[in-house]
Simulated assay, not measured.
Amino acid sequence: MKKKYKILIIVFILFIISMISLNVLIKPNNALNKGTAGIAVKVTPADWKVGKLNKLPQLSSNFKNSKGMDLRSKDLSEADIDGREKELLNSSFDSNTKWPKNITSVFSPEKIMSLGKNPGLGIRTLHSLGVNGKNVGIAIIDQRLLVNHAEYKDNVKSYEELHCGRETSMHGAAVASIAVGKKTGIAPKSDLYYIGQDPVDICQKSKVNFNYIAHAINRIIELNKKLPQGKKIRAISISIGWSPRDVGYSEVIKAVDRAREENIFVVSSSLKDTYGFKFNGLGRNPLSDPDTSSSYTPGLFWQKEYYEGKYNLNNTLLIPMDSRCTASPTGYRVCFLPRRWLELVNSLYSRCLCSFL
């Protein structure tokens, strides 16, 4: 009997060791129970299954104003890409995309990735001078985050979830890496406080309920009060906007006002209503220099409106958006996904994105 117990104990110990080595065991976070910061949730990578394509998808003649081809994690090793360079420049791909052997004679995915990691407009020069966000806290309220991605895991000081979906989000990894990413971030030395949150309320016929975002803002305010001087949260990024017709509108407005009273700048798609100015994203050919101002144009999704004279730029902050490289939710290592176009995303100092794995 004693021998049997010894065997069981040994098996149990080996099981615990294996769980630790696989990063599966989650220790209780006592800090969060006391209302302070910590990592409360373990998130696993998203599963983008590799699919094989024998030919590239056909796009409409108006593809310049579309999201383009999605080639993320696709096997194109046997695909015919001759004559498709313009469409490839308008595609999304990642470091798991398998290209044909002749890809470099038609397209330059490695160069596009390298350029896309650069925040642009001299930001890296500021980093070299020590202007890198050190001792500045940034909070993000967005979809579920892959916390342990190598691009930003050392910056994450707190991760919690509030009314959050189950899927690990591409959007969360993207905005986190644009804010504090080692290779792509505007402020790579900043501390990141993140709340995973989905404002869509299924109980209310899938309408957005801004009470959840208000709750998350209030949580960040309370958390900030416990942080030491010199390490305070200075900005909250929320990639959504609200109007008086929305559920929870008054609550989220009150929460933003509380944040302002605490000297926390809240970036959202409602910036014009909350701070009196608006912002929009700039476009860039993926092979042009991100540090050169002449490389930028109106963003792909709104340039037609601009060139037709229908877009008013008064009191508008313009920031790089298209052709950016950001962290992906599919793995902990650093892999990248540059995109020709992505929806406007709010990150530190209202910077916007295009993605990498």
Score class of each variant (00 low, 15 high):
residue 154 D to I: 02
residue 17 I to A: 12
residue 233 I to W: 03
residue 175 V to G: 00
residue 257 D to A: 13
residue 355 S to W: 12
residue 286 P to I: 13
residue 201 D to Y: 14
residue 41 V to W: 12
residue 60 S to M: 15
residue 290 P to H: 10
residue 117 K to R: 13
residue 145 L to I: 02
residue 99 W to Q: 00
residue 267 V to H: 04
residue 329 P to E: 06
residue 39 I to N: 01
residue 199 P to V: 03
residue 256 V to W: 03
residue 180 V to C: 09
residue 168 T to G: 06
residue 9 I to H: 02
residue 336 F to T: 08
residue 351 R to V: 12
residue 347 S to L: 13
residue 119 P to F: 05
residue 244 P to N: 01
residue 302 W to N: 10
residue 142 D to M: 14
residue 139 A to P: 10
residue 93 F to P: 01
residue 181 G to C: 07
residue 90 N to W: 15
residue 204 Q to E: 15
residue 246 D to Q: 09
residue 83 G to M: 10
residue 248 G to K: 11
residue 88 L to V: 08
residue 111 K to L: 04
residue 317 L to T: 01
residue 5 Y to M: 12
residue 235 A to K: 00
residue 276 G to H: 02
residue 135 N to K: 10
residue 91 S to L: 03
residue 246 D to R: 00
residue 110 E to N: 10
residue 214 A to R: 04
residue 188 P to A: 06
residue 217 I to P: 09
residue 38 G to P: 02
residue 18 S to C: 09
residue 146 L to R: 05
residue 148 N to R: 03
residue 285 N to W: 12
residue 292 T to N: 11
residue 260 R to G: 00
residue 353 L to G: 15
residue 87 E to N: 05
residue 226 K to N: 08
residue 12 F to I: 09
residue 278 K to S: 12
residue 237 S to M: 13
residue 202 I to Y: 14
residue 116 G to S: 13
residue 138 I to M: 04
residue 232 K to H: 04
residue 298 P to V: 13
residue 81 I to W: 01
residue 33 N to M: 03
residue 260 R to K: 12
residue 349 Y to V: 08
residue 84 R to I: 08
residue 126 L to M: 07
residue 295 S to E: 05
residue 112 I to S: 03
residue 113 M to S: 09
residue 224 N to D: 07
residue 348 L to C: 14
residue 142 D to S: 12
